[in-house]
């Protein structure tokens, strides 16, 4: 019951958090020095042209007026439209988000399995060779820039070994994409029952998922190690061992104590990856949310940047709220205040 009360309070806080995200998105885009008009018009434009573009984009009005406009639009579900393509931002976000979600969720699963495995190996054999080995691997994973790792994997798995397809996107150039239902290709191709496309989609997601999985597994490994070592040295574990329980059960008990920090890391990484996968998306021409964000930022497409910050902020807010509630449910030691 106390958990329910806590959950209700967290959910009630959501609108407040959302409002701060909206203000942040608006201010970051509108209050920073920068001149989108000059970039859109190009270096050759005269002062009249600049003024004309400024009027068309509504940038000549005072800040608060634009903010009220922006808020009004948000209430109607209107995030504005792109300076360049005139497409509504909301539909752009919905178009690009599924590809990224697919990538992020698969990568997180790989990272969690790999990282928790490495961390457990190190923690269980603390101070021995396996500990040093896992520590070495984790340090290596953590020190390779993710975009370099992506290129290395492309060279090794595509060029040398030929296991993976060329990094041309989510499908091969010849593949016919399945009818869009969810927007996630793996799901859509299964719904359509098209196994060739499904296999192709799996093959194309292999390298980006592996890249992000390896890179982010270091975080899981570190947090697993840090929380599992004290758990394995605790009284409960000592008692379980003294009772003669098999090591597998003892380890399971230790995990029950250690799972909260690991879960927390999972939530933080989920939020961070929503936009943090951008550079990997660019390398693999993934056509996702992050790639769209980088393109928009580089073009100074303000409504799109605003929409990105809003969506990423909202995603973070939701992920953290869900996470806190989940942790409260799983961990009776958490105080609900």
């Amino acid at each position: 019951m106390r958990v329910l009360g806590y959950a209700r309070r967290r959910v009630l806080f959501l609108p407040v958090g959302l409002l701060s995200v909206v203000v942040l998105a608006f201010l970051l885009v509108n209050a920073l020095p920068g001149n989108p008009v000059g970039v859109i018009a190009g270096p050759a434009a005269g002062p009249e042209e600049l003024a004309e573009i400024e009027r068309r984009l509504g940038l000549d009005r005072p800040l608060w007026e634009r903010f009220v406009d922006y808020l009004g639009g948000l209430v109607r579900g209107d995030l504005g439209s792109s300076y360049y393509t005139d497409r509504p931002i909301l539909s752009e976000i919905l178009r690009f988000a599924p590809a990224t979600l697919e990538l992020v969720i698969l990568s997180l699963i790989v990272a969690a399995v790999l990282g928790v495995g490495l961390g457990t190996l190190g923690a269980y054999h603390k101070g021995r060779l396996a500990d040093r080995g896992s520590r070495f691997v984790v340090t290596t994973f953590q020190s390779i820039p993710d975009f370099f790792l992506a290129l290395l994997l492309i060279y090794l798995c595509f060029y040398l070994a030929g296991w993976a397809p060329a990094p041309v996107g989510r499908l091969g150039l010849m593949d016919e994409p399945p009818p869009a239902v969810t927007g996630a290709l793996l799901v859509d191709s299964l719904i359509a029952g098209d196994m060739t496309v499904f296999r192709s989609a799996v093959a194309h997601s292999m390298l980006p998922v592996l890249t992000l999985g390896i890179y982010y597994s270091a975080y899981f490994a570190r947090s697993t190690y840090a929380s599992l070592v004290p758990a394995l040295e605790s009284k409960q574990v000592e008692f379980a061992r003294a009772c003669g329980l098999p090591e597998r059960t003892v380890l399971a008990y230790a995990f029950r104590q250690a799972r909260t920090p690991i879960l927390t890391y999972g939530g933080i990484l989920l939020a961070a990856l929503l936009g943090g996968a951008a550079i990997i998306e660019t390398i693999f021409s993934w056509g996702g949310f992050g790639e769209w964000a980088i393109d928009s930022i580089l073009q100074l497409d303000m409504p799109a940047v605003q929409g990105f910050i809003l969506a990423a902020g909202l995603g973070t807010l939701l992920a953290f709220t869900a996470l806190d509630i989940l942790v409260a449910v799983l961990d009776p030691r958490v105080r609900y205040d």
């Binding site: 958090g17 929503l274 943090g276 951008a278 980088i294």
Partner: peptide
């Protein structure tokens, strides 16, 4: 906390692109 949860690389890109 909120600030740090935001993808920092994208934030850096945005800052540099917007400021020049």
């Amino acid at each position: 906390d909120v600030f740090q949860a935001f993808p920092l690389l994208v934030l850096a890109i945005a800052l540099v692109a917007l400021m020049g």
